[in-house]
Amino acid sequence: MTSTNAASPVSLPAVLITGATRGIGRAVADELAADHHLILGGRDAEATAALAAQFPSAEPFVAELTDHAAVAAAVEALDLSGGLAGVVHSAGILVRGRVDELEAGEWTRSLAVNVVAVAELTRLLLPALRAARGTVVTINSGNGFNAGPSGGAYAASKFALRAFTDSLRAEEREHGVRVSSVHPGRVATDMQRQLRGSENGEYREQDYVQPTSVAATVALALRLPAEASIDTLSIRPR
């Protein structure tokens, strides 16, 4: 797998990263750039192309992940003849509110982005992942284990995402596809700023895990020797 940005004729293992233009997704791209061909997912074509130009081997993957026809077309346009070494599901949204405040559409939006879009993109990529005995990594959350006040819709989506990874792992073991669920605590990202704002709290970056630390965890899951798998991993601020 190579691109016009490739610095070497040697084919690199390809990994698709959703939400690659910011936060954890961008940190994952930086972490993997040295030894992977990056397929960078984003909604903004110009921003995604500009990001891809910064790496030695990269290409954009532009689609609104809840537009399933657009996602299918974007996958079809990829050259995955060499298989796919990994997909990192980093894109997601934070829906906050008490149960007596949230309407049905907000629950639906949380599940559509954080669960259904992940499941559908994974389904489309499974033939290429099986061919390469690749790895699926989902960026989950501490809320995938515990829910608190005003976090029901977000936690419900993350609990469901954890169930998805557990089921997918059991199904794909016979095909050699690894499935890793990574659960960061509070991470120093724009989403954390949004969360602290909704909590009427101060955003103090030093209190949170850095995106680079989460990216290192994702890279470990992808780079493990073939006989090993990280099934579930929790990473918290020290």
Rank of each mutant, 00 (worst) to 15 (best):
A7R: 15
P9F: 05
V15D: 01
L16R: 14
T21V: 10
G23L: 08
R26N: 04
A27C: 03
A27G: 03
L32A: 06
H36R: 15
L40V: 09
G41N: 12
G41A: 14
A45G: 06
A50G: 14
A53D: 14
F55M: 05
P56F: 00
A63G: 04
T66A: 03
H68I: 05
H68C: 00
H68V: 03
V71C: 02
V71I: 05
A72E: 15
A72I: 02
V75E: 00
E76Y: 01
L78T: 13
L78K: 07
D79L: 02
S81M: 00
L84H: 12
H89L: 11
L94S: 06
R96L: 12
G97K: 09
G97A: 08
D100R: 13
G105Y: 00
W107T: 03
W107N: 04
T108R: 14
L111N: 02
A112Q: 15
N114F: 01
V115S: 04
V118P: 04
A119E: 11
L121T: 10
R123Y: 08
L125I: 10
P127R: 15
A128T: 11
R130S: 08
A131S: 10
R133E: 13
G134N: 13
G134P: 11
G134V: 02
T135C: 13
T135F: 06
V137N: 11
G142D: 00
A147N: 11
P149E: 13
S150K: 14
G151V: 02
A153N: 10
K158N: 05
A160T: 07
L161W: 05
L161Y: 07
L161P: 08
R162N: 06
F164R: 06
T165C: 13
T165Q: 04
S167W: 00
S167I: 10
L168T: 07
R169V: 02
E172I: 03
V177E: 03
S180N: 07
S181H: 08
V182S: 10
P184Y: 09
R186E: 11
V187R: 07
D190C: 02
Q192C: 12
R196W: 01
G197I: 12
N200V: 01
G201F: 02
Y203C: 03
E205Y: 01
E205A: 15
Y208S: 03
Y208T: 03
Q210W: 04
S213L: 10
A216L: 04
T217H: 07
V218Q: 02
A219E: 00
A219Y: 00
A221S: 15
E227A: 14
I230S: 06
I230E: 09
T232D: 12
I235T: 08
P237Q: 13
